[in-house]
Amino acid sequence: MNASELSNVLLLSASEVLEGMFYTSPLGDAPEDAPAGDISVALSFQGQPPGTFGLCTSPETGRKLAASFLGLDEESVTDEKNEEVLCELANMLCGSALSRIESNSIFALSQPKKEPAGSDRAAQPSVSRTFELEEGFLTTWIATENTP
């Protein structure tokens, strides 16, 4: 799968997961100067192909998404819950993306983990995309072993 196909997979998986359990939808790609988020969550997957998947957003956007997912007011979303929901979001986005990349393979996903601030994943080539949502911006990225 080439970079533009992977980029489209990121859009389709974001639409499916956000509309399905977060009651929101990507409005489009974010402008170039959209602020980068400072919470990152990533996981790795084994299968054909193996690779890593992650997301990045701001704490405020994360909190809004978590409130929608849990059916709570934003004030009731603790930092811990916020992080857990973002991990679950990454898990679902990754599952959705992988089923579009290779639907007959069996994948094993690692537990999503919050990445330390400033962690550098630039060593690995990846395809990433930042979406504008009503709640703010959400970046998702995927790196497969054969990412061009």
Binding site: G95, S96, E102, S103, N104, S105, I106, F107
Partner: peptide, 12 residues
């Protein structure tokens, strides 16, 4: 109940 929706996994 899983995020894994690949046909291979469901059948397994």
């Amino acid at each position: 109940v899983s995020t894994d929706k690949t046909e291979g996994r469901v059948q397994q």
